[in-house]
Design a protein around this nucleic acid. Structure first.
Lengths: 361, 361
DNA sequence: CTGAAAGCGCTAACAA
DNA sequence: TTGTTAGCGCTTTCAG
């Protein structure tokens, strides 16, 4: 019974053990407890860094843990504690480079704080969305960042009804347990239009994202208002619907080429669209920026590597991810402090590169 | 006690229920059982589709489940069944477009078969790798697809020691519970070199991936052998080390520009590298393909949208993902059938676009 | 075919 | 400060 009685630690209780060291067998907290001669509660305390544990005991526990390379079972932990330490991240489609950069940021902060993330892409498919939400509920996520550009409202009720804290981008329901990340589209897009105007452009077009998607409309609205502010009129046939993808941008440019009169400059709802546009322009023998100025949105890493490098409106994925995570964490860890819907402004800023120039004539 | 005695289902046992319908309260399998007048075992059976359940009972259970919008707790399920139904997917970095396309494929198949996936990017950082592996072990993944280009062997032992089935790309240890996805680099790269030779090139360079990375070397080796086969010699100074990123490609081209003599064509270890190369070439006023032919590897979606569209060696992410998943599933679901290490060949194929042309002079 | 009961591995009271 | 004990929500024997 003395603590130094290490010679025969497994006397009595051990059921006819066959080999010398169980090693890769089922190693649980109980095994550790037995080998370290402490109770399972102590093992649990040690592993969770509870400070009130005798140092010598802790040392002994850690020793065994290392030796057996013991890793606690997260599922059991989550089950009993009621805390999964998982946040969901709902995105539109992982193949749009904007999202990986966002995921990366979100994951970095999450790891830093000991959280896990569960990423789900909706692919704009309602069935898939349902599935995503369900997975999140099943795994008992403690919060979800809805970074998708557009989602069916009723689905989110599934989460909201279960008291899951939510973070939205741009717009979202007015409830106390949600946080809104308001991207200041206006600022960046105003700068973009202004830059174009200063270069001498007045015939400016816009390639939007999918129309039924909120965030796409926010960008389009910001464009319209910027144009109005500059005293310029927008031509309906120069407002094209894209879908935030390369192909969408390419297709939009195709339609533009078919028009009798074309704009001299084009703002795009995101960088992928802009790249698609530039590609089709190149195909048609149009030089960017001499024959057509192009401005993107997002400033994905690739933008700077285009030929020519793309002038674009920067929106920091890192800031966005960080803000989303912090908001969720606040909700998960001190819900009592949050009583009303929060809003966080995410700035945007034009970054000048080489895809813009004065108009031709 | 009769089954039709539905009038007073909660007589006796119910502890002074306060409201009319609990709804968003803690809804578990027990609640459903009580409301449907069956045992929890039956609820479990119904939800798991066990066929030997009385149809009427099943109907009643489903009704309540729908009404309360009940979702079972995955953690509890996994804990007791010992099966997490999660596969890990270990990748290098999510910001390289190759990986999102791979993730997408893997996720699609996984969803189709009712599996969950846990994606982790190592970012080439050893500490991060350790963390990734640990997360996988903690969550009790049933298999891991190691799609990263290079990883510390000892880390994988962590998984292997715990009997976690593994799928590797290119090379991996010779154990019965692993599957190797052998990419046939030779074929595609031979085709690429041959294509270049036919165009009249003999001065061909190569931009590799990070040297310490296996898969990068496989590609380089395939290049060397293809050159030898074509009767061409490789010049050491034309073999440049990149890092599979845009910046790595750009930097490599920078170094090439500083050389007194330059190759007339360049093969790149992946498409991102090729884009970086094209960018720097463009910067330097070199025209692709007139002044320099460039060939990539992977055939990411973006490749076709470059200016000019990139000739590249296609390797199907979809096939790769699908093969990886199927291999893992086979190991997880019928381990007895697999007795030896498996190998699966993934084909590659040159796809001709517009970044190659006969050499200038 | 159905239900009762025994845990899965862990944490969190509560006692000692 | 440490150990004992009661579950977390579910699956799965094992009787009936």
């Amino acid at each position: 019974m003395t603590p130094n009685d290490l010679s025969i630690p497994d006397s009595g209780a051990t059921p006819a053990s066959s080999g010398p060291r169980p090693a890769t067998e089922r190693t649980d907290i109980r095994t550790i407890a037995r080998l370290a001669n402490v109770s399972i509660a102590t093992v649990s305390r040690v592993m969770n860094g509870v400070p009130t544990v005798n140092a010598e005991m802790a040392r002994r526990v850690w020793e065994i843990v290392e030796e057996l390379d013991f890793v606690p079972n997260t599922q059991a932990r989550a089950l009993v504690s009621g805390r999964s330490r998982i946040f969901g991240l709902l995105i539109s489609e992982i193949t749009n480079p904007f999202f990986p950069e966002l995921i990366q940021g979100f994951e970095d902060v999450a790891i830093e704080h000991g959280y896990e993330i569960l990423v789900s892409s909706t692919n704009y498919d309602p069935r898939r969305m349902t599935h995503c939400i369900r997975r999140m509920v099943e795994r008992k996520v403690e919060g979800v960042a809805v970074m998708t550009f557009g989602i069916e409202e009723p689905l989110l009720d599934q989460l909201a009804n279960r008291q899951v804290p939510l973070v939205f981008i741009d717009i979202g329901p007015d409830r106390p347990d949600i946080t809104l990340l308001k991207v200041d589209y206006r600022r960046g897009i105003h700068q973009a239009v202004e830059h174009l105007v200063r270069l001498g452009h007045s015939r400016i077009g816009f390639v939007s994202g999918p129309r039924h998607v909120h965030s796409a409309n926010s960008r389009l609205n910001a464009f319209s208002s910027a144009m109005a502010l500059a005293g310029l009129s927008t031509r309906p046939e120069w407002i094209l619907e894209g879908d935030h993808s390369l192909d969408g941008g390419a297709a939009a440019m195709e339609r533009l080429l078919a028009l009798p009169e074309r704009p001299t400059a084009l703002l795009c709802s995101n960088d992928m669209t802009a790249i698609g546009v530039m590609h089709t322009a190149w195909r048609a023998g149009l030089k960017v920026p001499q024959d057509l100025s192009v401005i993107g949105f997002d400033d994905i890493h690739l933008a700077a590597m285009m030929m020519p490098p793309l002038t674009t409106v920067q929106m920091s994925r890192y800031d966005l991810a960080r803000a989303a995570f912090q908001a969720l964490r606040a909700h998960a860890e001190e819900p009592e402090r949050i009583t009303a819907r929060q809003e966080i402004i995410i700035p945007t800023e034009l970054v000048l590169r080489e895809s813009t120039a004065p108009p031709a004539e």
